[in-house]
Nucleic acid binder design. Structure first.
Lengths: 337, 337
DNA sequence: TGTTAGCACTTGGGCATGTTGAGTGCTAAT
DNA sequence: ATTAGCACTCAACATGCCCAAGTGCTAACA
């Protein structure tokens, strides 16, 4: 019996099932795909595929559906990433227009991706650990309340409020700002904890406690900047495409809300040489996502930050992978420039 | 027949239905509530309530469920807002701890509210139209790319990128910053469009195009600041509490994603003298929310910004209203201070 | 050895029918 | 105004039946 045909059968099963949402049987298979053999032969092949754990039958006399393992094989060896349609390319291109504020871009990107794929789209903020300090600002909100703003050369702005033990004056803040800026401008956010204390130490004693508080605030901001965040869009697609939910959406919504979970999930996805990484069903480390798949890839400098989508295991992998990859490329291009 | 008892019956129906999720019949009613009469009497009362459109029977021989109108009457005239439990008070109090960055606070508040009510919680950013300019900053990201930062005295920071037609130098930006700041520091964000052009006009001709671009950027930021945003949490509760969904969550998720819809919804809710406003089922202007209720109230200066929750019409109004009110009060206190 | 036709077998889904129990509305008595 | 009682309705559940889809197997075939 022929190995290539067996794969062809698996492909046909996956494609039909993704399309129809119903278990697919041998007969329907020969009708819809011009495999040159009869349904009996296909049955034999299917029996083998089932032995290997690539497909399964929900009950005795129904068709077969792909297992996680089946999808995996499909993704790894069978499917080809399809090129995008012209309309899709156009949609992505129009992303180039408009203001190129990082937040704005990410927000629009993720919305676009969710529309292209009809899934929930997620994007991680670019890593900033290697970013450098471009500017800092201290603003007096109230006598003892100081807004600290940290601007990185990546264009990211972080802000936070610091409480002073004693009243602070505007001039003091100005002086400290100049002092701090002189020492840390251009240095990596990573290194703030090492650099800042020495700056504080060099301050005149009268200002030292205030300087200490501000330094702490700056450190916190630098850390927060390193610490990851994400934006998502398209949660409504969960309900839409799963009307007869093979994917019970409760746990998935939970996962999405626990941003920590999603961020780890994305970060942990190994980079795939083919450009897009796929994690299928129970391969996912998080229980709530045992019926979901994640398709993600890196973008930006070093592909360190991730962008991707989340959907039911039964999804159109080729198109989805193509969309994710294309969007990530455009995103890299925009942010890189 | 007695009017007060009729209301009592309505209250009992609402309470039982909210609790059990099942149509409630006359017999069950007399068993669980010590109304001093028999089930037959209750039946008569129920017939009247039905005539008035306050309750309805899903089919001939089932119990009754409250209609939107029934809930409305319940909320307006029958229910009393219950005091919060000690545990709830404690939870709210612990909100006071931690950094008091506006974003942080709102995020934690909304999460808390969603946990207290088991619903989706939504909070609008405080209105900033009356806020004043505290500080501005121009940062050169690339020769023709300038990051514009606008800091309001409310502590809100807005940022955006401006493209210059020609290369800009750091010194030019510094000069312009001083010039702009001198003219607009302390003036209302609202008034930026009136004030900025005159500043540009006073610039030396060499800088004028650059100044124009920057002014445009600032205006955009001021506008964005005025233009409303929201944070939400607890979407997973939609799936959880509606396992046997009386509330089909698809349209609701859509509404939540269309932030514009939610923002209008919140803004349009008239302030209720009792402190919390409730919009029930079809009372909602948005179709997708015809099976949902919104409980909201204002917070902060002038109660101009809104906070609230969104859930199925069948919800525990007294407790929910209490939670929303309490959280809004604490939020006002924190942000006010 | 791989392919095919044919056939017996399994089983979920649809349908028609019967039964039950919760709940109602009405009437007559209190 | 309230109540007891009763006939009536109807969703929910159960039962039994049949059908179609789909399988696995065997025997014949190239």
């Amino acid at each position: 019996m022929s190995e290539p045909r067996k794969l062809e059968v698996l492909r046909a099963i996956v494609e039909d099932y993704v399309h129809s949402r119903e278990p697919v049987g041998s007969k329907a298979l020969v009708e819809r795909h011009h495999l040159g053999v009869s349904s009996a032969t296909i049955r034999n092949d299917m029996a083998l595929l089932e032995e290997e754990g690539l497909i399964a039958a929900p009950h005795t006399s129904a068709g077969r559906i792909p297992t996680d393992k089946g999808y995996r094989l499909f993704v790894d060896r069978i499917s080809e990433v399809k090129p995008l349609s012209a309309a899709e390319r156009r949609a992505i291109h129009s992303l180039l227009e408009g203001p190129d504020d990082v937040e704005d871009i990410l927000e629009r990107t993720v919305r676009l991706l969710s529309q292209l794929t009809n899934q929930v789209a997620v994007v991680q903020y670019p890593h900033l650990s290697r970013a450098r300090v471009r500017h800092i600002e201290f603003v007096l909100l109230a006598p003892r309340q100081i807004l600290v703003v940290l601007i990185a050369d990546s264009g990211k702005v972080e802000q936070g409020v610091v409480h002073a033990a004693t009243d602070a004056a505007d001039e003091e803040l100005m002086a400290l700002r100049t002092r701090f800026l002189g020492s840390i401008a251009g240095s990596q956010l990573d290194l703030m904890p090492q650099v800042l204390p020495s700056v504080v130490a060099l301050c005149p004693p009268a200002l030292r406690t205030l300087a200490g508080a501000l330094a702490l605030g700056l450190e916190r901001l630098a850390e927060r900047s390193r610490d990851e965040r994400m934006v998502m869009a398209g949660t409504a697609n969960l309900a839409r495409s799963n009307v007869d939910f093979p994917l019970s959406i409760g746990p998935v919504l939970e996962a999405l809300e626990e941003q920590v979970v999603m961020l780890r999930l994305l970060s942990d996805m190994a980079e795939d040489p083919r450009g897009v990484t796929v994690s299928i069903g129970r391969e996912n480390p998080y229980d709530g996502l045992s019926e979901a798949s994640v398709v993600a890839t890196g973008y930006g400098p070093g592909s360190s930050a991730k962008i991707g989508i989340l959907g039911p295991t039964r999804m159109d992998y080729p198109n989805t992978m193509a969309a994710v990859r294309a969007v990530a490329r455009y995103l890299s291009r925009i942010l890189g420039g």
